[in-house]
């Protein structure tokens, strides 16, 4: 992973994200040819999860911090989009601090809002959890994830445990996105932008500090660079992008539910990132694809697919003994304190 000169990524590194996005872009025409529109739905799900997993990898793979909060932030974004649409549908303005807002069904407004709210949530939780490291960080992010989950369950007004359905048609700056093809390419464009931005971040000075701090925190601190603000910034960016992805999922399936905020979903995101490889920006896209396809295949084969899936995870972690450890040797250092 960490080439000595991160400003000069190898040709493969440059080409791979283009190939990945290109392959995904070919799915709708392929689905047309095969007469199987379900493929588009699957690929949309892959893209949405991929965006969240790529964002997670900024924190997990490059900054070396195991966060289990990603699903919570993902869900926050979903709820922002769904609640804004709900208020339009009910024609009942939301009152916030004396101001009334009628809600919105325009994704050009609600998706950025989803990212901002999730980013703010990441800022608040990150300020506390990043004061710690290693196992403390892991457990605290897990606890915060469940806090957001219980918070969503407690939202009786918005469906509580059952989740919230989006009953009004969503638009993108006046453009109807209920068409599957349109929505797919819109999501794919967002994935491409995410890959580009995260790729730039990782290669920048910011990314170098982040990776160096994962490698040896003390040395970075002694060089006069406190890692905390860098880590917090990475955490917030990652959370905001997760919120965006969550908003996208809610828009795509016209539904949001606390189930997608459960810590098991956070574990799924970690699994996606690890399956795809933590050392590259685009790896988690492959991981997300593998995850969604595996989920689909196994669940069509048996209703107890989680059993098989759990066994696969255990087997992967066991068998990639050297491989996985090598990929994430950074984590061992920051996480394995004492």
């Amino acid at each position: 992973m960490a080439e000595f000169d991160p400003h000069l990524p190898r040709p493969v590194e440059r080409l791979a994200p283009i190939v990945v996005v290109g392959l995904l872009a070919a799915v709708p025409p392929l689905a047309q040819v095969l007469g199987d529109p379900f493929l588009i739905k699957v690929a949309t799900r892959v893209i949405v999860f991929a965006i969240a997993a790529v964002a997670l990898n900024l924190v997990l793979g490059f900054a070396g911090m195991v966060s289990l909060l990603q699903a919570g932030l993902f869900g926050v974004g979903g709820y922002v989009v769904a609640i804004a649409a709900h208020h339009i549908f009910e024609a009942e303005p939301i009152g916030i601090a004396g101001l009334a807002w009628g809600g919105s069904a325009d994704l050009a407004l609600t998706l950025p809002l989803a990212a901002v709210v999730a980013g703010l949530m990441a800022l608040v939780t990150g300020m506390v959890s990043l004061r710690t490291s290693g196992p403390y960080f892991l457990m605290i992010t897990l606890a915060f994830d469940q806090m957001l989950y219980y918070g969503a369950v407690a939202l009786q007004k918005y469906g509580g445990d059952d989740g919230l359905q989006i009953l009004t048609p969503l638009t993108l700056a006046g453009w109807d996105v209920s068409n599957r093809w349109r929505f797919f390419y819109f999501a794919l464009a967002l994935l491409a932008v995410t890959l580009l931005v995260v790729g730039r971040l990782v290669g920048s000075r910011f990314g170098i500090v982040l990776r160096a701090a994962a490698e040896n925190e003390r040395r970075v601190a002694v060089s006069g660079i406190p890692p905390y603000p860098y880590r917090l910034a990475a955490f917030v960016v990652s959370g905001a992008v997760a919120g965006l992805a969550g908003g996208l999922l809610a828009a795509g399936q016209q539904f949001v539910s606390p189930a997608d905020m459960h810590w098991v979903r956070s574990g799924d995101f970690v699994v996606m990132a690890v399956l795809g490889g933590l050392s590259t920006v685009w790896g988690p896209v492959v991981g997300a694809a593998a995850f969604v396809v595996l989920e689909l295949l196994l669940s069509s084969w048996t209703q107890h697919w989680q059993l098989v899936f759990g066994l696969i995870i255990v087997a992967v972690v066991l068998s990639l003994r050297g491989g996985l450890a090598d990929l994430v040797h950074l984590l061992g250092r920051s996480g394995g304190a004492r």
Partner: peptide, 16 residues
């Protein structure tokens, strides 16, 4: 091994 591996393997066991 590192904490990420530990989380993954016990996560797998939870699902199972």
């Amino acid at each position: 091994r590192n904490h990420l591996d530990q989380v993954l393997v016990t996560f797998g066991i939870v699902l199972v």
